[in-house]
């Protein structure tokens, strides 16, 4: 199994629904020249759940590493990082699915029905980026305590970002953050 064959399966199943495909090879200077492969592609949020479902069906027990996300300005981009084919020397392939969510409709589907371990990441996405995960089994806060102001999302770069409550300890001594 290599990155090409994994991608081939995805192309066959999803056709033009997956876009911006890149395969990244981590450089290596040692004699054996073994390298890890990383696949990146975008998928529409409507198809995210079926893409994860396909992944679980084709490669039993994919490892869900984490979901990262960031603010691109008009949209929020979520990146679901999976790894498959572990247990084989230098055979593990990291698959990252990007999902774009427009800021006026920040909703996505839960994947906890397929991978229960994803719940921590989904709760984190909700509190850090202010998105809504549909049908999430547990939507309480996790990393932020209850006294943290509502409506402030630490990873956002717009007016809902943390800049207004952030504090520079050294600047505060001289009289306010600049």
């Amino acid at each position: 199994m290599n990155a090409e064959s994994v991608l081939k399966g995805f192309r066959k199943e999803f056709g033009s629904k997956i876009k911006d495909i890149t395969i990244q090879k981590v450089p290596n200077s040692l004699k054996k020249k073994l390298f890890a492969e990383r696949i990146w592609f975008s998928v529409g949020r409507k198809h995210l759940h079926s893409a994860v479902e396909y992944l679980c069906r084709t490669y039993p027990d994919p490892h869900f590493a984490v979901c990262s996300g960031y603010d691109t300005g008009k949209e929020i981009e979520l990146l679901y990082h999976f790894t498959v084919n572990y247990g084989v020397r230098a055979g593990e392939i990291t698959i990252t699915m990007r999902v774009m969510l427009p800021k006026n409709d920040l909703q996505t589907d839960t994947i906890t029905d397929l991978i229960p371990g994803a719940i921590i990441s989904e709760r984190e996405m909700q509190e850090m980026l202010g998105i809504k995960v549909k049908d999430i089994p547990d939507s309480r806060r996790l990393f932020l305590d209850d006294t943290f102001p509502r409506g402030v999302f630490p990873w956002r770069k717009d007016e809902t970002g943390p800049d207004k409550i952030a504090r520079n300890v050294h600047a505060a001594r001289k009289g306010g953050m600049k």
């Binding site: 572990y86 247990g87 055979g91």
Partner: peptide
């Protein structure tokens, strides 16, 4: 679960050292 990044990715010098989980 046979999962160890040292073998799965065989990064850095771990690829010369053949680490097993």
């Amino acid at each position: 679960v046979k999962k160890d990044v040292r073998k799965d990715e065989a990064y850095a010098a771990y690829q010369d050292l053949d680490v097993e989980p």
